[in-house]
Amino acid sequence: MTDAETRPATSAPWNSRESATSAPRDTVLDVRDLHVYYHTSRGPAKAVNGVSFTLARGEVLGLVGESGSGKSTIALSLLRLIKPPGRIERGQLFLDGRDLMTLSEEAMRRVRLGEIAMVAQGAMNSLNPVMRIRDQIIDAWVDHGISTHRSEIDDRIAELMRRVGLRPEDAHSFPHELSGGMKQRAVIAIAISLRPKVIIADEPTSALDVVVQRQIMETLSRVKEELGAAVILIGHDMGLMAQSVDRLGVMYAGELAELSPMRDIFKDPMHPYSRLLIASLPSLERKGSRRGIPGLPPSLLDPPAGCPFHPRCPSVMDRCRVQRPPLELKREDRLVACHLFEERP
């Protein structure tokens, strides 16, 4: 490994550094140094290149970035659903203290949906078209070895429907009989049917209209409150993030550039990439020249040395070309991977 790749010793462990500054967090998920590579004939594409973060119970964490930034890969990794040629090279995934990487496939199957559930992009299109919604929920219960008395099933399903804003009779419908928004609610119903601790929502509203989108996000929020679950919201819509998340992580080239409370990132972005991202957002206030971020996203096969953003960074320094900046606490509650800022002592 080159100098650029060695991580400074100060970057681990995470929780202790964070809790040193704010109130101790009730951490439900602790991701440490996750590396996920896709092995191609031309070498490994580093989709996730050393990502660490924690998720507190009941918190909504957003992960935002361009396509190819690695955010969806993280979601799949948490469920250990990365298929060859992709592979989790290294890293630990602590769910309530248990490292998911050490579990057998059988045990992991029970974790999926039972403890971590995912509402995937376009999930409403992957509902089984020939099964009624209630049957798909019952399927999941059976799969996880939950046996319920016939009499109870209807009640539990009706309750699930109400939780997601559907009518009990909608459970008897086939997916094609439901509108886009209703299908997405059905998907959420399936996702929460086993009361998971973590819900990963990957672009849950990308195909939905603006009004329906707001309704779905509101449902998701209410469901989260009722379950006491944590949510990881993945997407590229900064506006949606601003309205929905507590903390926001900005991904770039498989790494976290910045991870801070949502308000802080929007009011005072620190990492140059975050700054450019926020500056380029179109608004309803003013027509203006909307400059995209100059340059192209880096190749994951051959990422730049040092900081992956340095070729496009307006504040680049010599150090940035050689040494990769670690994600560190720079100010209260604010983690940034950039040499511009002094580490908080």
């Binding site: 603006v210 009004v211 707001r214 509101e218 819509d237 993030m241 601003a242 309205q243 009011k267 608004s283």
Partner: peptide, 28 residues
């Protein structure tokens, strides 16, 4: 867009998630 008149336009504009934590989107 800035002063919508029709109730539907108002609903539409209000539902847009703006990248500004101070401008909360409004419920229908």
């Amino acid at each position: 867009v800035q002063q919508p008149e029709h109730p539907y336009s108002r609903l539409l504009v209000g539902s847009i998630p703006q990248p500004d934590p101070d401008r909360v989107w409004s419920a229908e």
